[in-house]
Computed example of a mutant assay.
Amino acid sequence: MPQYRAHCDARIEFVNGGSLVAEGFRLDLPGDLPPESADESVVGRLLVRHLGLALVDSIDVSNLAIVEERHRGSRGIEPAAPAADQRGRLVDLGHTIRDGLVTYPGLPEPTITPHLSRADSRSRYAPGTEFALDTITMLGNTGTYLDSPFHRYEGGTDLAGLTLETLVDQRAEVFHLTDASARGIRASVFLDRDVAGRAVLLHTGWDRHFGAPAYAHGAPFLTEDGAAYLVEQGVTLVGIDSLNIDDTESGGTRPAHSLLLDAGIHVVEHLTGLDALPPSGALFTAVPPRVVGFGTFPVRAYARVM
C-alpha cells in the first residue's frame, strides 16, 4: 500500500502569545487519508497533533507538497493496517556469508573448505548415501553479527550467557535516516518516540556499499550522546546497517560500544534491508549460538511485520 508524506512550511500562532515557524517540515499522512484530501487545513491539524501543541490560535501552512514516500514514524499518525497477505510477513535483515566475504575491510575474510567431500563419503556409507562435512574459519565479526558485553568488557556476559528474552521478538522502533544531512545520529532523533524496552534499528542506507571500498569511509554512526540517551531509556538492543555503531574515523574511542555494552544492551552491526520495515510495530530477532568465552558472532537477523 502506498504511503504519503506532507512537505510544507508552517507558522503557528498561540493564543497566549508567541509563535512557531517551520521550514521544509515533513509529516507522515495517516494511511486512511486519501492524499488528494490532504490540503493546508488538514495538514495543519496533523502538524499540531504531531508536535503536541496546546493553545493554538492559528495555523498557516504554505508551500505544501504531498509526496509518495515511506513513513518515518510521525507521532499521533496511525499507520495504515497491513494488507491481509502481509500479516506476519518475515523480512530477512542479514548479509549472506560466503567464502571470501569482506565485512569490515582489513579484517580476515571467512574461508570454507571441505572436511569430507561427498565423493569421499561414499566409501563410508551404504550405496546411494553421501554427506558433505565442511569447515568454516571466520572471525566473529563476519556478515551481520551481534556484540555481547564480553566483546568490550572482560567481565561482561558472553554469548553463552545471553537470554532469549533479549534476542527474540523484540518490539522494534526503526528510524529511517537515509536523508540525514550528518553522519552522526544524535539523541534528538529519538525524542519523539517511546523506545523503552525496544530494539532500536538505525536505517541509514549505508548497506548499499556493503562489500565495496566505499563502505569503509564516511559511514553513519551513533553519537555518544545518542548512545547515552538510549541507555537512559532502557532499550534492549541497537542495530545499524552501517560499518560500525561508532565513528571509526575519529580515533580509537568507541563510546557507543562502551556505553551500550556496559549497560547490557546488545549491538547488531551490518544489518541490511531495513527499508522494508515500518517505523513501529515489527518484531526483531537476532540470535547467535551459545559460545562460552566469545563476544561476537554472526546472526540470522530478521523481523516479523505484523
Score class of each variant (00 low, 15 high):
residue 304 R to E: 11
residue 83 A to G: 13
residue 124 R to Q: 12
residue 124 R to T: 02
residue 244 N to Q: 08
residue 112 I to C: 08
residue 109 E to K: 15
residue 131 F to A: 14
residue 150 F to Q: 12
residue 52 G to M: 04
residue 71 H to K: 04
residue 24 G to V: 02
residue 93 L to G: 02
residue 274 L to W: 02
residue 231 V to S: 05
residue 32 D to T: 11
residue 180 A to F: 15
residue 25 F to D: 00
residue 8 C to A: 15
residue 88 G to W: 07
residue 87 R to H: 12
residue 83 A to D: 15
residue 201 L to W: 11
residue 140 G to L: 05
residue 300 R to Y: 10
residue 213 P to D: 14
residue 217 H to I: 11
residue 91 V to S: 00
residue 131 F to W: 09
residue 282 A to N: 10
residue 279 P to Y: 07
residue 27 L to Y: 04
residue 258 S to L: 11
residue 139 L to D: 15
residue 68 E to W: 07
residue 221 F to V: 11
residue 198 R to M: 08
residue 58 S to L: 02
residue 5 R to S: 02
residue 49 R to T: 15
residue 172 A to S: 06
residue 100 G to D: 10
residue 132 A to E: 15
residue 20 L to I: 01
residue 130 E to N: 06
residue 70 R to I: 12
residue 239 G to R: 05
residue 86 Q to W: 06
residue 3 Q to C: 04
residue 43 V to D: 00
residue 105 P to Q: 05
residue 275 D to R: 11
residue 26 R to Y: 00
residue 201 L to N: 08
residue 304 R to V: 07
residue 141 N to H: 03
residue 159 L to S: 09
residue 61 V to D: 00
residue 125 Y to D: 07
residue 274 L to P: 04
residue 240 I to K: 07
residue 2 P to R: 14
residue 246 D to W: 02
residue 280 S to Q: 15
residue 164 L to Q: 13
residue 133 L to N: 12
residue 305 V to N: 10
residue 155 G to P: 10
residue 128 G to S: 13
residue 268 V to F: 08
residue 129 T to S: 13
residue 49 R to P: 00
residue 153 Y to R: 12
residue 241 D to R: 08
residue 162 L to S: 11
residue 179 D to C: 00
residue 270 H to D: 01
residue 62 S to P: 01
residue 69 E to T: 15
residue 59 I to A: 02
residue 43 V to E: 02
residue 224 E to F: 04
residue 194 D to H: 04
residue 294 F to H: 13
residue 43 V to C: 00
residue 137 T to Y: 04
residue 27 L to M: 02
residue 73 G to C: 00
residue 167 L to Q: 14
residue 185 I to E: 00
residue 169 D to S: 15
residue 305 V to E: 09
residue 40 E to N: 07
residue 85 D to I: 01
residue 62 S to Y: 01
residue 9 D to N: 15
residue 115 H to L: 14
residue 136 I to E: 07
residue 72 R to H: 12
residue 175 F to P: 03
residue 54 A to I: 06
residue 283 L to P: 09
residue 261 L to V: 06
residue 38 A to C: 09
residue 106 G to R: 15
residue 36 E to S: 14
residue 77 I to W: 05
residue 71 H to S: 13
residue 294 F to I: 04
residue 61 V to G: 01
residue 92 D to S: 06
residue 242 S to E: 07
residue 222 L to I: 10
residue 41 S to Y: 02
residue 117 S to N: 05
residue 230 L to W: 10
residue 280 S to W: 03
residue 84 A to Q: 15
residue 185 I to D: 00
residue 166 T to V: 12
residue 17 G to D: 07
residue 91 V to G: 00
residue 40 E to I: 04
residue 38 A to N: 06
residue 168 V to E: 13
residue 282 A to H: 10
residue 173 E to W: 06
